[in-house]
Design a protein around this nucleic acid. Structure first.
Lengths: 228, 228
DNA sequence: ACAAAAGACATTGTCGACAATTTATTGAGT
DNA sequence: ACTCAATAAATTGTCGACAATGTCTTTTGT
């Protein structure tokens, strides 16, 4: 069963759309490592297509900030610096805070119930100590994904799911990022869900922002520790 | 002198890049009206280019959400519904609130001085009653633009300037949007700048959010009044 | 031996043509 | 006259080839 957080693949009717999805997934998964040059001929032959559709896919990747491109020179997969990762968390704090507020106001009771069920499942997973941190992180993204969708703001969903989440996953695939914050994060998730269930938008936003800020600060500490 | 809020045109070294800028400008300005179908042959001949670069530009426009595209059917300029416009203001509230907070923390004294000077200029302009509301709105965007840049968050600048601001301008070109809120907006701008000058990030965020929320509510009222 | 220029090579950018799909038109049948 | 099917036209999707630009190698001069 595919993970819920995995955004549904687009209609594969055209080659350009399909290869865009494939390339994005390959980049996010680290199969095409960051900073590596993207050669149109080799990629075209690898995917068995012409350069036309490939270039269209590249333009979309360029627009989504997954590749950097210099005219007449070529394109490279972006290398997400530590500073850029922190930048993303700042934006997530703002956007997902707002999403939590809207979700508290507009989410259906059924969806809130599903969210609570998901949280319960995560609690059981975390209780098992052998559980891979990777899947813990996926569960984290899944949680955030649902709340963002609960906001009912189409463009908000779009920005987070089509840009920021992919970048976050890319960074995670790049470095292990084993989180020792799983239990605290889970507790914070519970607080957010509770606020949403009580339809307290202001509190939900405040809690979500604090949660993401704590994640960011955890990463900052880890990065500072690595610096030695 | 080109307006400061006009984002610098990209390097025009390649046809695809140049036509992307031209198309985006034409769409935002309403020269290519919303909802109109974009025919590749006619556009290619109009710009005197081949369909290859045109399609690459279209893919970028698709990724920036300025055109909607159905495979094997074609692309249309998006029609920004009232609900979507309000969605954008909600996102702006979240993002620009955060931008104001960061600007208060990180903006240089010189940039703050320039911001205050800009505000003073706007005060004089508003004092003249004959001043076109269009340029008032441009001044408004200019103000917001500078604060977003002052945040020092590259991706935040990117999201707002490459996506949301274009959409806001597009909507404004679509409908007149004569604002009777110029004086109030100016006063709110002054409050934000004051908070930034005092390096009070929390207050700056709060004031900026209230400012954008007030703008959104003003639009909501106008839309509700039009509904009759 | 080193630097700069000239050339060869590879890659990107652009174009025109063909294939596949959709849309419009025509025609037959009821 | 209307509906549905078949055909024709137009548009989108894809491909291979050529031109332009950049990069690397070789060569030449000091």
């Amino acid at each position: 069963m595919p993970h819920p957080a995995v955004i549904a693949l687009e209609s594969c009717s055209t080659i350009a759309d399909r290869v865009f999805d494939q390339l994005r997934q390959a980049i996010v998964a680290g199969e095409i490592p960051p900073g590596s040059k993207i050669s149109e001929p080799v990629l075209a032959t690898r995917y068995g297509i012409s350069r036309g559709p490939l270039r269209e896919a590249m333009r979309r990747l360029e627009a989504t900030n997954l590749v950097e491109r210099k005219p007449n020179v070529g394109a490279r997969v972006i290398t997400l610096s530590n500073a850029q990762l922190l930048e993303i968390y700042v934006i997530r704090e703002a956007l997902e805070g707002m999403a939590a507020r809207l979700a508290a106001e507009r989410m259906s009771d059924a969806d809130i119930g599903a969210l609570q069920a998901l949280l319960e499942r995560h609690r059981h997973e975390v209780a098992r100590d052998d559980w891979q941190t990777y899947f813990q992180q996926e569960g984290d993204l899944d949680f955030h994904f649902r709340i963002v969708q609960g906001s009912g703001n189409r463009r908000l969903v779009d920005i987070l799911c089509n840009d920021l989440y992919h970048l976050a996953r890319m960074y995670r695939c790049q470095f292990g990022m084993k989180s020792d914050r799983a239990r605290e994060a889970l507790k914070e998730h519970g607080q957010v869900v509770e606020a949403i269930a009580e339809r307290d938008g202001e509190l939900a936003e405040w809690l979500m922002r604090r949660h993401i800020r704590a994640s960011r600060q955890s990463i900052e500490r880890r990065l500072a520790a690595e610096k030695d």
